[in-house]
Amino acid sequence: MRENFKELWRFRELMFAMVERELRIRYKNSSLGFLWSLLNPLVTVAVMWFVFRFLLGNQTDNYSAYILAAYLPFMFFNMSLMDSAQSVIASLPVVKKVYFPREILPLSAVIANFIHLCLALVVFFVFLFAVWATTGFQVAPFTWKIAYLPLLLIPYLALVTGLALLISAYNVFYEDVKYILSVALYLLFFVTPIMYFSETVFYALKNRPNGQLIYTLYHLNPVSMMSTAFRKALVPPGKIEVIDNGVSTMIGPRPFDYGLFAVTVVVSFALLFYGYHTFNRMKWRFVERP
């Protein structure tokens, strides 16, 4: 593993050039460039907000900020895995002709998307300030908890990188992986607190037998836990509308579960090491794919 890491370090400039290339290609072929790629999450969130606020009549404060805070990181997860699934197999003609550490391919896909996430978060803060200004300076744009953001991004990046390495390697040999992945990501969106809240889940399960167990299992999904964590860090707490015992109630946010979060951090780094190890084990066989 150390040898592989040294080799990767030697080629770090190539990796950054590849990141630059990915971003350039993404933003190049259209005049709106970066704005285009922001339009997708913004329109999606606007539609979700419309459905929740008007069609379902949910009264949660600052709902659009809550969705964005979870949806932007989820899009990073989604796009990184979809891009890296294709990264090695799409570059196979180059891989067959030139040597460079193959892990550069999925890694640069993840880093390019990570940079995109950071830019999107900047726009997210502009949005929060806009909300703050237009609502008569009622809802504070952020709290001191924003200092936690880097501490969340690091394990999240580890999680995504580990999965990206695994998926990109397996997709070379089994091209069904990317189809399974796209279905899995679609379903993951529904079992992750993005459109709704972990509080909603808590109150829905509260009086059920094994409710606590199901709630814990739900948060063992690292993406669920991260989603909740991003909300806690990015959005100032407001009142959330949940259904408690069949009655609609406005509640304050529940306290953050640091124990479950610690599990997510451990799982994320474990996946990073496992993914890197597996990728290095498989990478020499990419060119020999039958």
Partner: peptide, 19 residues
Amino acid sequence: AGFHPDLTGLENILFNGMI
């Protein structure tokens, strides 16, 4: 090998040279 069709000649020189 490794030229990207959408990038200019100059950009491809940089990239290919680094490969």
